[in-house]
């Protein structure tokens, strides 16, 4: 890790491990936005990792952002931290000044007329709590005010707000940016993959810790080979996801949107891993892990939600597979080794 990465890592782990308590997550699931924590997240610059220094950001890379995104997943932070981090990067790409406050992503159908944004986005993360949203319409990045937006509240299975947001002539700032047509879905998949890698790391360490504590038949259950073998699988899955998401972020830093190959690979890989890993984590935890009281489900329910957001693994796999088949069997190895 370089110096910025060490600072970011200490800052985000320190803040989230202290503040994201079980009570805080439970309250968030009951609909209470953790405003104090949000302010601290912003004050620590965590939503501005990808914003240039002259605009009050950290001037970081995606490799740096990965640290924050993984920590957000690992600590199950009930905030649109990942969304704001990406929204602010989109704004930066278009040269739009990054505002303070909660900014979310608007992934929907919008039209821009006379500087006003109209349309609808479903499943908007924390739409009800956000002051602004970022949409991408015809190559333009648009920062829209959500004052006066019609919000129909909804949640995903992790009980994170996923609201339907309807805008009619919302005040907006729009600028062209050199982003691919599927930028929202593509980079959305990247932030989710990183969060998932973080959550998978949590499942692994938490399950090992539990197996060392829980005693049955006179010894910690982690002493049984049947449990050890399961935990070994869980940990290798988490490790694989850590690597592929780091790789995807590094490739975005290196080749921009041409890293769609690695982003797709990352989302596919973490989706696959999440099925295996959530199953093992629950099996190792037994009945206690199936209770609301125990916090394991905060991570597993997020993984079940996130794997389907911004394209499920199967969708990205179809895209990647069609490209691979179209390029021809003999092109695969040269392509893989050229990255």
């Amino acid at each position: 890790m370089n110096e910025l990465q060490t600072i970011l890592s200490d800052s985000v782990d320190g803040l989230l491990s202290e503040r994201v308590t079980k009570v805080l997550v439970q309250k968030a699931e009951e609909g209470e936005f953790p405003a104090t924590l949000w302010n601290e997240v912003e004050a620590n610059g965590l939503t501005r990792v990808l914003v240039p220094e002259e605009q009050g950001g950290a001037g970081g890379t995606w490799a740096d952002a990965a640290i924050v995104l993984k920590a957000a997943g690992e600590h199950v932070a009930p905030l649109p931290l990942a969304e704001a981090l990406l929204a602010n990067w989109f704004l930066t790409q278009a040269g739009i000044e990054v505002p303070d406050g909660v900014t979310t992503l608007l992934d929907g159908d919008f039209t821009l007329e006379g500087g006003k944004l109209s349309g609808e986005a479903k499943n908007v993360p924390w739409g009800r709590d956000a002051a602004r949203g970022v949409a991408i319409v015809k190559g333009q990045v648009i920062l829209a005010s959500l004052d006066g937006a019609a919000i129909e509240p909804g949640i995903n299975v992790a009980r994170e707000p996923r609201d339907c947001v309807t805008l009619k002539g919302a005040t907006a700032t729009a600028k062209k940016a050199a982003l691919p047509g599927n930028a929202m879905n593509l980079y959305g998949a990247l932030i989710r993959a990183c969060q998932m890698a973080g959550a998978l790391g949590y499942l692994s360490t938490q399950s090992v810790a539990y197996a060392n504590e829980r005693t049955q038949f006179g010894k910690p259950i982690g002493k049984f080979q049947a449990i050890q073998q399961q935990l070994a699988v869980l940990s290798t899955q988490a490790a694989a996801c850590g690597v592929i998401t780091d790789h995807a972020c590094a490739q975005v830093d290196k080749r921009g949107a041409d890293a769609a190959f690695e982003i797709a690979a990352a989302k596919i890989r973490v989706d696959d891993a999440s099925s295996v890993a959530t199953s093992i984590a629950h099996q190792v935890h037994g009945a206690i892990g199936f209770t609301y009281e125990h916090g394991l489900h905060f991570a597993t329910r997020r993984l079940w939600s996130w794997r389907a957001e911004f394209g499920a693994g199967r969708d990205w796999a179809e895209t990647l597979g069609r490209e691979t088949i179209a390029a021809g069997a003999d092109a695969l190895w040269p392509h893989v080794t050229a990255r």
Partner: peptide, 25 residues
């Protein structure tokens, strides 16, 4: 992949995509 190139289908594409993702990882 060469065999699948002779036919069209989402199912084959998805499987290839998965294998490529695992290979790259």
């Amino acid at each position: 992949i060469r065999e699948l190139g002779k036919r069209d289908g989402a199912e084959g594409a998805r499987e290839v995509g998965r294998l490529v993702a695992h290979l790259v990882t």
